[in-house]
């Protein structure tokens, strides 16, 4: 491994990490602003112009607050919970291709940390690990509400991983590859996977709402029943870590959905534009397009949150096991038949 390669990856990782933290921080502001606008209010607007510095103020508040660790809690696991939640939220972005290769001084720089050939499965694995933080944190608090939240988080995440995985299988039948880079390259020229997998996309979307614990599936932390769910006992920065992890998860989920179903960094006329502006600006524009898609998804997440009420727990389980899983299996069967027939006769 040459030094330049290590340096390149190090810079890329740092930038991606900082950008995702920034996006997560500003998601908190966006959430409050969007909530305000949807409810005929204006949202926070005091800190800085239009409330621009509100995330900084919130972060500072989180740091300055008193950290309370309950006496009867398991101290090590109590601290490990939010740390794990933050960790698993951060590592998901490693395999997402953020843009086409940049050619800088005769050197090709990939805008992707790791192009592993099991990228889709890696995302899936990281998503399934995400629940540990909530479970450990909820259990270590030694509080019944927290435990209920943790148990709900676990069962919900397990239940919705299955239809998510099944909808991914149908997608893989179309793409024939597990590498995210190749999946994006295949969608070049308006050939987006949403056209081939509309049902699969809807299932994936619903499941990603459940996996990120967003309303209407935010039962692990629902205030009306469980006080705060798994983070009832948390305060200060550990509480902030949990909240941050949620927004990071949302960012990664949006990035994955744009990559898998909406062509990633592709946009109509990408070749024409990149011929026009050269090999450095072109990829950056493509990256901006990907981020625009991600922000659209984040907006969608928030829009749904402030529209749809929370599901009841039995409704959640019924939807997962009795609706989404059969639908996902049917989707696999139909996709398989269509692809086989298409390959045979055309």
């Amino acid at each position: 491994m040459e030094l330049a390669f290590v340096l390149e990856k190090f810079i890329l990782i740092t930038v991606i990490f900082l950008v995702s933290l920034g996006v997560a921080a500003y998601s908190t502001l966006a959430e409050r602003k969007i909530a305000g606008y949807l409810q005929d209010r204006v949202g926070p607007n005091r800190a800085g112009p239009g409330g621009m510095f509100q995330p900084l103020a919130d972060g500072l508040k989180m740091f300055m607050k008193e950290e309370i660790i309950p006496t009867d809690s398991n101290k090590f696991l109590f601290i490990a919970g939010p740390s794990l939640a933050l960790l698993t939220a951060c590592i998901g972005s490693a395999v997402i291709p953020w843009g086409p290769n940049i050619i800088l001084g005769g050197k090709t720089i990939a805008l992707q940390v790791a192009d592993i050939n099991v990228g889709v499965l890696y995302i899936f694995g990281v998503v399934s690990l995400g629940v540990y933080g909530l479970m450990i944190g909820g259990w270590a608090s030694n509080n019944k509400f927290s435990l209920m939240g943790a148990v709900r988080a676990a069962s919900q995440s397990i239940s919705y991983e299955i239809p998510m995985g099944l909808s991914l299988i149908a997608l893989l039948l179309v793409t024939n590859t597990l590498s995210l880079k190749e999946i994006v390259e295949q969608q070049h020229g308006g050939n987006w996977n949403i056209i081939y997998q509309p049902l699969g996309f809807i299932i994936f979307l619903v499941c990603s709402f459940a996996e990120t614990n967003r309303t209407p599936f935010d039962l692990p932390e629902c205030e009306t029943e469980l006080v705060g769910g798994y983070h009832t006992e948390y305060s200060g920065f550990k509480m902030g870590a949990f909240m941050f992890a949620e927004y990071l998860n949302m960012f990664v989920a949006s990035a994955v959905m744009s990559t898998l179903y909406f062509g990633g960094y592709n946009y109509p006329g990408i070749d024409w534009v990149s011929n026009l502006v050269g090999p450095i600006i072109g990829p950056l524009i493509a990256m901006a397009v990907l981020f625009a898609k991600i922000f659209a998804f984040i907006f969608f997440f928030m829009w749904v949150r402030w529209t749809v009420p929370r599901f009841r727990y039995d409704q959640l389980m019924n939807l997962g096991w009795k609706v989404l899983i059969p639908l996902a299996i049917a989707n696999i069967v139909i996709s398989g038949i269509v692809i086989t027939v298409y390959d045979k006769f055309f």
């Binding site: 499965l121 694995g125 399934s128 690990l129 629940v131 540990y132 259990w139 397990i158 991983e161």
Partner: peptide, 26 residues
């Protein structure tokens, strides 16, 4: 063995141990 690695990751770490933890918490 990348495939085995990731399957071990998903199935054992991501699913089975979650269920173990789930039962133990109760």
């Amino acid at each position: 063995a990348q495939f085995l690695a990731i399957v071990n990751f998903i199935v054992y770490m991501g699913a089975i141990m979650v269920l173990f933890l789930f039962v133990l918490m109760l």
